[in-house]
Every structure is written in structure tokens, then in C-alpha cells.
Design a binder for these strands. Structure first.
Lengths: 201, 201
DNA sequence: TGTACATCAGTGAACGCGCGTTCACTGATGTAC
DNA sequence: TGTACATCAGTGAACGCGCGTTCACTGATGTAC
């Protein structure tokens, strides 16, 4: 049924264009002011028609959050694997902050809209998640001997600490310090280096 | 005019009770859902009457933000000054996270509602501000020799880094990791120690 | 002390707004014979 | 190829909601003489 295929394609592409419109509105005015009616207006449809493609406003936001999540993973995968593991950890940290700075609304969607599904360290975790990427890089740095664990400060704890540092930088620069002029890149790099140094022998 | 005094007192105390009601509502339902009408309802007044005490909803939020700011300063002033400066820095970091955990809505008010007034490192800063407290503690740690600056990684940069680390912990625990069960206190302390260690010689 | 007046604290009703969602509908497109 | 029918994409109007703010008002309290 080629017509079915066509209809599915059309359905999917209209859906994508609605999502794109919604994301543009978030970037323009912030998620707090996002309304289904305005998405429809800007996309050229009636409000009612969006219910043909989504269950409601919440589903639209959920889909955008998932997209943003994927985008973050791409950033974190950029640093090459053929550099020393401790350097690579720094690059991943820098990539994290870069993502937040270049895509502040996506960043907000990932971290302020989606609660983590994971509730204890013993639970399994989605293998494609940003957290896993960072944790794997930490594992490699430990195996190479450039950073060391100590009593009670284990793999998860180190990963969380690095995440906190990067997340703090990203959040401060995007909100509280958004008007503050400084060479954040340089300072951030020094901070990551300092932390990694502290993790050494 | 004693009656004037009484009226002023009354006015001030009603104002305080309205603020208290508003804060309770924020704690209960989050700031996104805060409405002037509900504050009035819960406080036992008509919506119109709140305009006797505030210029509008925005002023209520602004006053609560200022209160929250003061409260954070109190937390950061708790660690005693008669301990080694590098240890004290760790305690201040822990106090910062403690504030965020014990007062998540106040924390949100401080960091997500108030943009920083300061836009470059050369501008003066309010002496009672949390930032100044942390920076002063860093100064003392540098003077005692327990942490050292290096080329391009100066006082402001070190303060910002510590702030980022603490802010990242606080934000993650309050939002993304709010359901995650772990001994965050222990891990946080290790992370601060690691960073301070990295700042040493 | 009594009274006329001014100030005060607070109200009820209305303003216009934008929101998410539902539902009966219509006109266009595709399908079966 | 023509036609009767089914499916589809999309709509207009209405639902009820809660919001921030304004304004003319009222009854209570305090003041001045």
C-alpha cells in the first residue's frame, strides 16, 4: 500500500514540523510560556489539529526532551578516544558545558523537565545516556592509572563529582552569570584540570 | 503619634504574614503555580487587598527572593573561623549544599529568579553576599599557603570553580537526582577535598 | 464628652486575557467494483 | 472509466478555568474641636 506509506510519511513529517515549531518557540520565549495554541498558530494549524499528532501539550514537551537528550549524547561523544584518558575526561567536561551554552533551552529540557529514572546506584542505566559516557571515560582513566579511587570514593562518586562540577558551571553560566563577561572556557578548563589533578596520586 | 506607630506596625505585620503565606504556597506547590489570588485566599483576604501591601505579584516574589538571599548568607557564615582555611572552605561548600537541600524553594528563588547584578569581575559587589563570603575564605586559604593560584587561575576563577562544584551538587540533588538514594554528604565532602587537594602545591 | 469629619483597611464585582481540551463537522483524497 | 463509499486531515466554536489588575465602594477607626 504505497498510499499508506505516503500517509505515514506525511504524518511523520508534519509531526516533525510541529516539534520544530515548538522548539523554536521555547528558544524564543522560554518553556514557561509555551502554549499549545501558539504552537498551532505558528505552525499554521488550528489548536484542535495538534491532537491528531500528539496526545496533548505534555507529550510535545516529552518528545522535545528526548530529542535534547540525544543531542547531548552527541556532544559528549565528540572528544576523540585516542588521547590520554585523563585529558579526555577534561574534554568531555568541556563538551558538556559547550552543549549547555550552545543549546540552553535543550539543556533546560533535559535537566529541568525530565526527572531521572534511576533511583539507586545499583539500578541499571540506559547505555546511550550521557551519564554512561562520562562513567566509561572515568573507568578508562582509572584503568590507565591516571586517577585513583580511594576508600569510599568510588567510580560512581567520582563520576557524580565531575558531573556536578560541569553541571554547576553550565547552570551558573546559563542563568545566574549569563550577563557576566569572562573567559569561562579558560577558567573551566583550569577547574577540570584542578579536579583531575586532585584525583591523581 | 502612637496610633501612627501602631498602624505602621500592623501594616508591617500583615505584610509579613502575606509573605509567609506566599512562601508556604511556593513550598507546597512550586513557584510556577504561585498565584496572587491563592495567596489572598490562603491569607484570608480578597485579591484586591494585597495591592494595599504590594505593587503586585512581582513585588511579592522579589521580596521573597531577598529573604532567601539573606538566609543563604546565614548558612555560609556558620562554619567557625578558627579552623584551617582549607578545611573551612570545605565546610562552607557543605553549608551551601545543605542550604539548598533544606530550603530547595529558597534556593530556587535565589538562583533562578534573581539575575546577578554583577556583569564583570572588575565591578564591585555587595559585601554581605554569599559570593563575598566564599571569596574571602579563598583569600584566607591562599594567604595561609594551603592553596595556590597559578597563571591565569586567579582568586575569582578559583572562587567560581568552587561555587560551580557546590552549585552543581545542589542543583543535581534538588532536581535530577532528587529521587536518587545515596550518602551524598560523604561523597560531596570527598569531592570538595579532591578539589582542594588539586589546588594545593 | 459629644459630634462632625477624615483617614484607613479591606471588599465585590468586573475587566479582558490566554489557556488546554473536546466534539460534531466538512471537504478532500483514496478505494473497490 | 465512472461512481458510490470510506477514510482521512483538519476546523470552528464552545467548554470551563484561573489568572493579574482596577475601581468605585463601605464600614470601622481615629482626630479635632
Amino acid at each position: 500500500m504505497p498510499e499508506n506509506k505516503t500517509r505515514q510519511n506525511r504524518h511523520a513529517s508534519v509531526k516533525q514540523s510541529i516539534l520544530k515549531t515548538a522548539m523554536a518557540l521555547i528558544i524564543d520565549k522560554g518553556i514557561a510560556k509555551l502554549s499549545l495554541r501558539e504552537i498551532a498558530r505558528k505552525a499554521g494549524y488550528s489548536p484542535a489539529s495538534l491532537y491528531e499528532y500528539f496526545e496533548g501539550k505534555d507529550e510535545i514537551i516529552a518528545q522535545l526532551s528526548a530529542e535534547a537528550f540525544d543531542r547531548l549524547s552527541i556532544y559528549l561523544s565528540q572528544p576523540p578516544t585516542n588521547i590520554p584518558p585523563d585529558k579526555r575526561l577534561i574534554e568531555i567536561g568541556m563538551a558538556y558545558v559547550k552543549f549547555a551554552r550552545e543549546n540552553p533551552e535543550h539543556y533546560d529540557l533535559v535537566f529541568n523537565r525530565l526527572p531521572s529514572k534511576r533511583s539507586t546506584a545499583s539500578e541499571e542505566i540506559n547505555a546511550a545516556s550521557p551519564y554512561i559516557i562520562v562513567r566509561q571515560a572515568v573507568v578508562e582513566a582509572i584503568e590507565s592509572g591516571s586517577i585513583v579511587m580511594s576508600r569510599g570514593y568510588d567510580l560512581e562518586a567520582i563520576t557524580y563529582s565531575l558531573w556536578s562540577l560541569a553541571h554547576g558551571m553550565a547552570t551558573l553560566q546559563n542563568t545566574h552569570l549569563s550577563q557576566f563577561e569572562a573567559d569561562f572556557d579558560k577558567v573551566n578548563r583550569s577547574a577540570f584540570e584542578t579536579f583531575i589533578k586532585g584525583l591523581g596520586t
